[in-house]
Design a protein around this nucleic acid. Structure first.
Lengths: 155, 155
DNA sequence: GTCAAATATCTCGATTTCGAAGCAATATGG
DNA sequence: CCATATTGCTTCGAAATCGAGATATTTGAC
């Protein structure tokens, strides 16, 4: 018979939060190290990548996918613009919107950066067997969307 | 028979990295919002919490648990020190080491902050049923330790 | 139609984090 | 021992991120 565990020891939700943070941190270190090889920051890479895979997009759509606040998005896009990696164009249908797209230089950079980065990320998570990777994807998707739906704690 | 999916669509490892990042972000927003209620930042809270649960610890032990670089640890501990929430004491056995502990004020703050924060985090991950939470803990633990063991990409 | 609410983007100042490097103390392998 | 590596902690400057709010535009309720 199991002796009754302390409440803390059995607190699965808190444990989940901790291992989630640790796992993210561990994998994120790989991501940053990999991306640094191409002279880019994580967020810069994220912008180039989404434009590479989705084509021209409004700034707000890009923002949604790179997980930073709007002011940070502006900052990062500015830097990419100054480096000649993206171009801006006003939307014809909504005059609030700026559309972003890769320049030729930007496309070339992400084209040669993405494959080795993807390989590095596959190695980073590769210790987990494929079957469990698929399970983890399912659980994390549910966890993420679930958490996004809960209302945030209020002041 | 399934038609052959594009390579990208079947790339479970990359998908895993994406949903991991999304899930972390979603839950982390809850964490930050919750902690902000007590006038603390995420990392500050982390320091107080580890000292609360583990007692007096060397700075390096604290750092290992809060997932930031050593220079950031110094910065955060300084702030807590200036606010009178932690005290520093040289180790008797290793003169490189500084031991950190809560002051009475610090203890009182974390004592009344931790329970509501824990409750908020339980709500944040609560959309996932308990059984799947336990599964996720197991998978994320394996993922995290596995990733930590892989060598980082080099310049 | 009109007006309030929502959305898209940007500005600005403050905070947080990092990375490289330095210093002191301790561990280690000849 | 003793030279050398490693560890613990800090300093410094640069970079990234946030949050609050300004502005312009669009949407939606009435």
């Amino acid at each position: 018979m199991k002796r009754s565990p302390s409440a803390a020891r059995a607190d699965v939700p808190l444990k989940l939060w901790i291992v989630l943070a640790r796992a993210f941190d561990a994998v994120n270190r790989h991501s940053r190290a990999s991306i640094a090889r191409f002279g880019l920051g994580t967020t810069e890479f994220g912008v180039l990548e989404v434009l590479y895979h989705k084509g021209e997009l409004p700034v707000c759509e890009v923002q949604r996918r790179i997980l930073v606040e709007s002011s940070s998005t502006t900052y990062v896009v500015d830097k990419l613009y100054e480096r000649g990696l993206v171009r801006r164009r006003p939307s014809a249908t909504d005059r609030r919107v700026t559309l972003l797209a890769l320049t030729t230089t930007g496309r070339r950079l992400i084209e040669r950066s993405f494959p080795p980065h993807a390989a590095a990320m596959r190695r980073a998570v590769g210790a987990l067997p494929p079957r469990e990777q698929a399970q983890a994807v399912r659980l994390l998707r549910a966890l993420g969307t679930g958490a996004a739906l809960q209302p945030l704690a209020e002041p």
